[in-house]
Design a binder for these strands. Structure first.
Length: 491
RNA sequence: GGCGGCAUAGCCAAGUGGUAAGGCAGAGGCCUGCAAAGCCUUUAUUCCCCGGUUCGAAUCCGGGUGCCGCCUCCA
């Protein structure tokens, strides 16, 4: 049973067959660190995080590299604007990115290399290309000659001839072909610069990925990922550089995630509708954001709306609501698999198998989430009928619970203990308003008294008052508890 | 002009030849003093339109319509 992935290079789903059986080497383009990361970055990063986790869960030995682009025109411009050095600026946004990653419950890649730490490797590749005749130097700049490289355009499905008709770039007169791109740039005074055979300069846009992937994953590796927009020119150029330099195939599978729209509009500077991760995770539970991001196929466009987020948040509430019903039946949380080898969840139960079937089909998380909800509903039904203790003691049901936990680990959700989750949500409700737990408990007590006295009008009045504070009461057999209302954790 | 994608209920969204997952919202019910949560039932004779292939198509083929992305920095 193999995993099928959609390979941009061939425009179809193919069985994933790593070059070395059992091992997967994966490179994903990380951010250019000149500004805060937005929800689009979040999607890319979460999608590949889930792919990484899934491949690991399926037993692959995965080596995952995600770089930082810490030198580039945008960084230089921004640093100049702010009166900072490029290094300071990059450092600031790298730290911010790491904070975002933690808040999104991301698993760290095995390696997160920086472009500026690989200058000698970059120079080496440019030199190879120059020596092989694929590159030419002009005034300290070094260009890649796309017409020399016959494979150019194979990833994006373009032909040089077709593109020239639609080109609308100011063509640098020094270029042999308008699509030649710079691999090494002569530095202007005040810009970061490194010594090179062509004079003091810095790397161009695409070369760093060729250099770092080759260094850490080899000249040929298995998976290369990134956002759809990187297909052209970034990834096309990476292929050209790497394959021309090393004379062997570059990445074997190319995976690209789709874009996010905001209320059906493209995110753009002019519309001012960029949603930053750091702001989103203050409003929504990070796992709700993940659930939203994984709620449709990674290659499809995804529309961010307040309503979609509310739905994701209430879906997450439902999942944690289920966990809350069973948490008391276990000595430890998360529950541990039974040690009986026969019942071992090594290969998982039926639910896990079904989840894998969905994920094997090009990482169909939307289908996988459907299976998750279906199973939770079914278990809730059993709990309604038999009680949580009886259900959790049944091996078949226990296996399903373990499967659910396993699915949660792949999707990066349900990572908190349910008490912790609800406490966190409650805390957010309190923090967003000028009320405290004690006040609520007083109200709950007052309502209990009213109910005891059969003064239901008063009881309902109190409940409505709390509802006005986004607080919902639940009368349980063992007393009344309160929960947050809608999924927004901050007003 | 070139390349690519998408069109499934009120909304979101799976489903690539065998008779429409799942979520949200809605309706009815169980439970409850009433709620909430949970559960049950219900909500597309039908998958943008028109042809074709087939015993059989949302799924394949041809044509049409509509929407979108990329070709320029962008996840």
């Amino acid at each position: 049973m193999s995993i099928y992935v959609y390979n941009t290079l061939d425009r179809c789903k193919e069985p994933l067959e790593p070059a070395v059986p059992g091992k997967i080497r994966m490179y994903v383009c990380g951010p250019t660190v000149y500004d805060s990361c937005h929800i689009g970055h979040a999607r890319s990063v979460v999608v590949f995080d889930v792919i990484y986790r899934y491949l690991c869960a399926r037993g692959y030995d995965v080596y995952y590299v995600r770089n930082f682009t810490d030198i580039d025109d945008k960084i230089i411009n921004r640093a100049n604007e702010l009166g900072m050095t490029c290094e300071e600026l990059a450092g600031k946004y790298i730290r911010e990115f790491q904070t975002d990653m933690v808040s999104l419950n991301m698993q760290a890649p095995d390696l997160e290399p920086l472009a500026t730490r690989h200058i000698s490797q970059i120079i080496r590749i440019v030199k190879i290309l120059e020596d092989k005749g694929y590159a030419y130097a002009v005034d300290g700049d070094v260009f890649f000659a796309v017409e020399k490289w016959l494979g150019y355009g194979k990833l994006s499905g373009r032909r040089l001839a077709d593109m020239e008709a639609g080109a609308r770039v100011d063509v640098d007169a020094r270029k042999q072909s308008p699509f030649d791109f710079v691999m090494w740039k002569a530095s202007k005074p005040g810009e970061p610069a490194w010594e090179s055979p062509w004079g003091r300069g810095r790397p161009g846009w695409h070369i760093e990925c060729s250099a770092m992937s080759a260094q850490y994953l080899g000249e040929t590796f298995d998976i290369h990922g990134g956002g759809k927009d990187l297909i052209f020119p970034h990834h096309e150029n990476e292929i050209a550089q790497s394959e021309a330099a090393f004379g062997k195939p570059f990445a074997r599978y190319w995976i690209h995630n789709g874009f996010i729209n905001i209320n059906q509009e493209k995110m753009s500077k002019s519309l001012g509708n960029f949603l930053m991760i750091k702001d989103l995770v203050r409003i929504w539970h990070p796992e709700a954001l993940r659930l939203f991001l994984l709620s449709n196929h990674y290659r499809s466009p995804l529309d961010y709306t307040e309503q979609a987020m509310r739905e994701a948040a209430s879906g997450l509430d439902k999942l944690y609501g289920f966990l809350d019903r069973i948490v008391g039946c276990f000595d430890v949380w998360p529950p541990e698999p039974v040690s009986d080898p026969a019942a071992s969840a090594q290969s998982g139960g039926e639910i896990w198998q079904r989840f894998c079937e969905a994920m094997d089909d090009d990482f169909n998380t939307a289908r996988g989430i459907g299976i998750l909800f279906e199973t939770v509903r079914s278990l809730n039904r059993e709990i309604d009928r038999q009680g949580a203790d009886a259900v959790t003691r049944q091996p078949a049901q226990f296996t399903r619970i373990m499967d659910i936990m396993g699915i949660g680990r792949v999707l990066g959700i349900m990572a908190e203990a349910p008490q912790q989750y609800f406490a966190r949500q409650k805390h957010a409700v309190l923090a967003s308003q000028d009320i405290d737990e004690e006040w609520i408990q007083e109200k709950i007590h007052e309502r209990a008294e009213a109910r005891k006295a059969k003064d239901f009008a008063r009881a309902d009045q109190i409940r409505d008052e709390l509802k006005g504070h986004n607080i919902i009461l639940e009368d349980r057999p063992d007393g009344t508890i309160w929960k947050h209302g809608d999924g927004k954790t901050q007003v």
